[in-house]
Amino acid sequence: MSGSSKEKLNLKLKVWRQKGPNDKGEFMEYDAKDISTDMSFLEMLDVMNNDLIRNGKDPVEFDHDCREGICGACSLVVNGSPHGPEVATTTCQLHMRKFKDGETIYVEPFRAKAFPVVRDLVVDRSSFDRIQQAGGFISVNTGNAQDANAIAVAKDNADAAFEAAACIGCGACVAACKNASASLFVAAKITHLGLLPQGQPERDKRALAMIAQMDAEGFGGCTNTGACSATCPKEISLETIAKMNRDYLVATVRDRPKSETLGAGI
């Protein structure tokens, strides 16, 4: 358990390489030598990439930014699991001490029809932004707000709203789902805003619009297998999906005629 163990790993990597969305793509094999167990998974890829560059080869493209498990940029399917084997952990927070010397590690992009590959391990997740645009907001212009303490919010509701709002929008839920459904992502936002008094005026419209957009983007339907929540690095609960389904049902019953005429926004 010592912080900086001296142990070094030699690993075989089978990394997915794909030049663009229309390229077929294939696994390529690389060696990662003398890997310290204190490294993060992405640092191990940095070392591999620097070796590739020095040897005149093209490095492997992957998305990353904060490397603290909060921005949602990093993705990767490691040995078949989105974000790798450790529960409640993004790839950037996965450390090499979880692997064994001599191991072969498979590294692939998140795979889903709605997440086309950009290059190598980088995918296009802009469908998530478009779902947000459809209704993932409260319509209030800057300057309109009353005093922040004018409306009390029961602590339990505020805490539950926060739990749902903790979603980092990484898309691991989609990659884990056999139907490539985005239900957990959408449900997290609908739950977050639906639990707060400020979110009530647009609650029906939000559920209808976000779900319609999710379907339009080509994400699959939810069959309640729970793989999404089990993979989620922020452990967003399956209950959010139940809440979303309820909101959707209520909204359809109450709002159907209007929903067909109103677009996003106002």
Binding site: I138, V140, N149, A152, F162, H192, Q198
Partner: peptide
């Protein structure tokens, strides 16, 4: 002070006390 007002209106789930205030 206006920032906090606006963020609450946008649905930012700040920590709250049992009485429901920030």
């Amino acid at each position: 002070t206006h920032i906090i007002d606006h963020c609450v209106a946008l649905g930012v789930p700040f920590a709250r006390e049992y009485g429901g205030l920030l």
